[in-house]
């Protein structure tokens, strides 16, 4: 008869598996290049086949979320694979996706009229194994819909990223919930001009992981975490001269 601890450990593994989190032995380590952020995830690996939610408060933070998602998707798919981008009001500028590692020709945009159509199309797209990621822009996502998405994802293994502007409903079955805000960019030696895109990435919720907040820069096609101390230090230096 197996020991109680063994049974518990096995059950825990099974639960993680059911939640769409595979054991790390099957995957390469740190595919996303997120560096220290990976410590927040179960097994220390970004859950690629899962529902990720991004909350944003403004157009600017939505843009930052899109850039962050594009960076993750391009790292996960090695810039190949087809992405479906579903929204009810397309503002994305296709040529700019190149800067975040995504070939604009490999993205199929769905430009729809209603939120309801977006919700249906996302679920339909998640059932297709030949996509590498589905990105949806919608305001509201009900708990039932998010459960359905997660079930479809577990069947197909397609990653899903949902960008939500000013959401009302915060109870969903998503595996992670993020908030990405733009922060002031830095230039070496205080040179004039705008530097690399820099964001404050907050992981508000992660199932079986540890939430946190980091400052991330996108430098030449890769993420780079910037320690907050370094920023504070530089600002202090600036004040004292």
């Amino acid at each position: 008869m197996p020991a109680k601890a063994d049974i518990l450990a096995r059950l825990q593994r099974d639960i993680l598996l059911l939640q769409g989190i595979k054991s790390p032995s099957l995957q390469a380590v740190d595919e996303t290049g997120l560096g220290r952020i990976n410590e927040a995830f179960p097994h220390g690996v970004f859950p690629r086949s899962a529902l990720h939610e991004f909350f944003c408060t403004s157009q600017e933070s939505a843009t930052a979320s899109m850039a962050f998602i594009s960076g993750i998707v391009s790292a996960l798919t090695k810039s190949k694979g087809v992405v479906m981008w579903i929204s009810s009001s397309r503002r994305i500028f296709p040529p700019a996706l190149n800067a975040f590692g995504i070939q604009p020709g490999q993205v199929i945009f769905l430009e729809l009229q209603k939120e309801k159509e977006v919700a249906w199309a996302v679920e339909e797209a998640l059932k297709c194994r030949s996509l590498s990621a589905v990105i949806g822009e919608m305001q509201e996502l009900s708990f039932t819909a998010s459960r359905r998405y997660q079930l479809a994802i577990e069947q197909s293994g397609v990653g899903c990223f949902v960008i939500r502007r000013n959401p009302k409903n915060r109870t969903t079955a998503s595996v992670t919930r993020w908030q990405v805000e733009t922060i002031r960019s830095g230039q070496p030696d205080d040179l004039p001009g705008v530097g690399y895109p820099r964001w404050q990435v907050s992981l508000l919720k992660v199932r079986n992981g540890k939430p946190g907040s980091w400052n991330v820069e996108w430098v030449k096609g890769a993420f780079r975490t910037v320690s907050k101390l370094a920023i504070l230090h530089r600002e202090a230096q600036k004040k004292t001269g």
């Binding site: 604009p104 020709g105 199929i108 945009f109 769905l110 430009e111 249906w120 339909e124 297709c128």
Partner: peptide
Amino acid sequence: GLQDPRLAELVDRLAGKLGQEAICRYL
């Protein structure tokens, strides 16, 4: 990639319900 028949089938299903003009790819 884009040559996958399953992808073409997905696009057909979406076009059947949402209309062909909703589906775009940019070059």
